[in-house]
Design a binder for these strands. Structure first.
Lengths: 254, 254
DNA sequence: GAGGTTCGATTGTCCGGACAAAGGATTGAC
DNA sequence: GTCAATCCTTTGTCCGGACAATCGAACCTC
């Protein structure tokens, strides 16, 4: 019986540019990722063994492995010893990044807008001081915003930042998200602790968000740290449950 | 002025066992992680350069790098070219795993219990069929459970699984979590798509969970995939917002 | 003293090779 | 035919080395 042609990714027009400053493994990873995304590498396809792949590309095996490993970490590929590397068969989107609501809405095609309700310096309450790791009474910046999509209120956002050198103009806060502002101010975000819950709206919250009192709200508290481990932001947000939910994908750590 | 002694991790009693079947890089990573966890490596400490570290341990630099890299991926270390590798300065816990409520409660010291309300085979509705990727009307297993902690209801869990060979005895479902059962049945979980929202309880839900009608509930829908990309579970859960919230930590992808 | 320059330290990338371990397929024994 | 032993393929781990890119600090110039 003639063996069916192996389900391999042979002619994919892969190739790297050695004069580019982009690392070789990264170039390869990008090409593979794009091939998977565009369907040129169908789910379930075997990638072909690493040694051949390296030889055909004129790369060493460690370089090819590094490229493959990065896609395994993203959940796009699966390796099995003795079998090979296979394109994962499912709808992988984004494995839950630390994203701002602004960027999320923008990516979803909603047109986000921000109404700045407050932007002041004030002494830290006990709760804020504990979250940010500063002394109670220290000056912190308090920002209150209403986030809208298509003109409809979506969420009420309250943030506290350590009163650092970075000035936050209301105009900037209206035009973009807080995270983008912080990043462009040279802060490298590293990790965040989040807590997601629900509660009923009180009268004031209902008024702000256009919901009746008692309506269910989705709440999210978050403390964000930079790579030195200092807290750089404490957010306390409420979302209209009727109009918003958190969607994300997560991977199992092997 | 005498320069203060470099804040280095020198004498840490690191060492690997070459006769062990555990990979060397993994042994080293474990030792470093435990040293960080136990405070023997204080936040901010420089790890010392990779070459020396390798030489002192009798390892090659790639092996040491692999160990360090795995901790960087976990968010415990930060690397900076020209500077060194530093212990991250913050409270890193768990970067959001695909965990079951049962395990979460158990780890938190709550004593979880399960009341199995239903465990039947029935034809898939359109919604379930779409989530699991089977044909409408195909037989699927429907499991309904009430999860309790300290005797109090915490959540109502409804799951649908493809009607595979794996039999689910009520006794097993009572004693442990669904994920643990699936794993021990040889299913390798790979990724999941989740959606977290909130809504008001209706009368039936309120009754089941011991909340008044209209109380805010936290909802979570999840489709879990194995490493071949097939959906292996569709869950539709509601939690008492007054007693439960999702807590997790997430890292920024560089 | 202020500012730019050079230099050492450290990680980032890449190479080529070697052997071990696991999974699947083939072969052989019964 | 069924089951176990064997072989082959493929990834996993590990080594040693080389050069480039980046950061911080010391140094020098003005």
């Amino acid at each position: 019986m003639p063996k069916p042609a192996a389900d391999r990714a042979l002619s994919l027009q892969l190739g790297v540019d050695r004069s580019s400053p982009v690392p070789l493994y990264f170039q390869l990873a990008q090409q593979l990722e794009s091939a998977i995304e565009k369907g040129r590498l169908a789910p379930g396809t075997l990638l072909g063994n690493e040694i051949d792949l390296a030889q055909r590309l004129g790369l060493s095996r460690p370089t090819v492995r590094q490229a493959i490993q990065s896609l395994v970490d993203k959940g796009l590929l699966v390796r099995r010893r003795g079998v090979g590397t296979q394109v994962v068969h499912s709808q992988v989107k984004r494995p839950l990044e630390l994203s701002s609501l602004y960027d999320d809405l923008e990516a979803a095609g909603q047109r986000p807008a921000t109404r700045v309700l407050g932007n002041t310096l004030e002494p830290a309450t006990a709760e804020v001081a504990a979250a940010l790791g500063v002394a109670e009474g220290d000056e912190v910046r308090r920002i209150e915003r209403l986030r809208l999509a298509h003109g409809e209120p979506m969420a009420y956002l309250r943030n506290h930042l350590p009163a650092g050198p970075l000035a936050m103009a209301d105009a900037e806060l209206q035009a973009t998200g807080l995270y983008r502002l912080m990043r462009s101010a040279g802060i490298t975000l590293h990790s965040a602790r989040q807590s997601v819950g629900a509660r009923a709206a009180d009268a004031v919250e209902g008024e702000r968000l256009g919901e009746p009192a008692g309506a269910p709200l989705l709440t999210m508290e978050r403390v964000t740290f930079d790579d030195t481990g200092r807290a750089v932001e404490f957010g306390s947000h409420v979302y209209r449950a009727s109009r918003y939910s958190f969607e994300f994908q997560l991977l199992v750590r092997p």
